[in-house]
Design a protein around this nucleic acid. Structure first.
Lengths: 249, 249
DNA sequence: CTGTGACCTGGCAAAGTTGCCAGGTTGCTA
DNA sequence: TAGCAACCTGGCAACTTTGCCAGGTCACAG
């Protein structure tokens, strides 16, 4: 399995159904049985939304039954050690390694065992982190333990990782096209004041930090808001962090 | 160049000088001349600080002269299209492609041309995103344009990417292992009100959107702020999307 | 049934923000 | 040397937020 495999089916400009098909094929060729891909944005440290909380995160899976629905309904993601591992780490890891390496709570053992009952015995979790809390996981698994299962002999976690990154990168292009908005050309001082605003400082605090008057801080904040096309500081901060804006200016 | 190359010198438990040496070797074998690796945490959308915000970001480079010092001193990172691209994207990209694909401002053209004067003519930027705004870039470059330069014929951006991810993953293990606060367990209503706050809505607006009273909106915002340990809405908005926590429980 | 936590409502004073006005300095470039 | 953009300052009225108080309903678990 070479790096070429990691790109299979990921042709430029593919739509979600085409990408889903590529995921099916990749899973099969990797020797795993089940895949679950979830993409969204981390909120409050452990959950994810599709940023707009009225929608649910993007969810592609071939796990039978209601496991994935139940998982989020019961807020398993708040405690699941595998989910939590993915949220805090960058590289793929085998479930068995995570379970072995950490001392799990009773609640966590129950989640693992419920998963086994649903046919998810062992597998690999691949985290994908992006800007502004963007987050996705690709979870590949089967119903027997890794040692029993016949995996692709050339299987390398690196290749799984590259596929996940490329797959997610294509998905995110389809999520928020957001082409219309001209990017704001903020001055360094405008970035300064918004930065400290995001750190929780009031205009008076910022005037002391930057050694300028409170009026000036207000002036720069107003300019920044005007350029960003917003009418409140939280909105300006959110936009600065690039939640909605993938521009480079 | 196979996936094995991406792991060269990255033996488990290596310290920063050993990793630095591995980076030197990898750069040489890749056919590039200069490397710059910067790791930290994104603040205010476009700048970075160290994991520990009191220190400066981790910085490993062999670029001669004061270019890298000047770069941050002059706040080039606020506008540099290559830096901004890395902040907003997941996959490696050639500088020349970024410059070609976007309409740059005069300020941005000047940064590129200043870089050329410092001997950084063309190269590739590799972004690495992590949880809670964790961010690193590996920039590999040379003093001639890509087409003129003699690169490793087997060079594949995928391999550069894998090296960067593994390299950064090792570096982060060496940073202060537990800087994180426990993640805030926000209720869905608290997430709702912060979401609409981030969208620029006032408490009155939100009361209309959610069909509750303004007092209730205030109540939920207060609860969320208390849980997040902050005293302003902009700070809460920034923090809700910027939590850093590496534990799994 | 009692406790717990999420969710909801109202009011009020102090503090902070917003949007507007007017003006000034500095450094660069045409 | 004139123009320009970034940066800086001060003031003021209208508005919003903050942090506190008091109280309520509802669903669910021990």
């Amino acid at each position: 399995m070479t790096t070429k495999v990691a790109k299979q089916g990921l042709k430029h400009g593919a739509d979600v159904p085409e990408l889903h098909e590529a995921l099916e094929e990749f899973t099969a060729s990797s020797g795993y049985k089940f895949y679950t891909y979830i993409a969204g944005r981390v909120v409050g440290g452990r959950r994810i939304t599709n940023f707009d909380p009225r929608k649910s995160p993007l969810h592609l899976t071939n796990v039978p039954g209601d496991w994935n629905v139940e998982y989020f309904k019961k807020k398993y993601c708040d405690h699941d050690p595998i989910w939590r591992f993915a949220l805090g780490n960058l590289l793929p890891e085998r479930w068995s390694n995570i379970i072995r390496r950490f001392d799990l709570t009773a609640k966590q053992h129950k989640i693992i065992s419920d998963g086994r009952d649903a046919g998810l015995c062992d597998g690999v979790i691949i985290p994908v982190h992006g800007p502004g809390g963007e987050f996705a996981v690709l979870s590949l698994s089967h119903s027997e333990s890794d040692t029993q299962a016949k995996q692709n002999v050339e299987l390398d976690e690196t290749v799984l990782h590259m596929f996940a990154l490329r797959f997610h990168s294509q998905i995110r292009e389809l999520q928020e096209p957001e082409v219309g908005e001209p990017p704001a050309d903020l001055t360094s001082r405008e970035i300064d004041v918004l930065f400290w605003t995001a750190e929780g400082k009031s205009t008076w605090d910022i005037s002391q930090i930057l050694g300028i008057s409170e009026s000036t801080v207000n002036f720069h904040i107003s300019s920044a808001k005007r350029k960003l096309g917003v009418y409140s500081k939280p909105h300006a901060v959110a936009k600065m962090f690039g939640f909605r804006d993938r521009g480079i200016i």
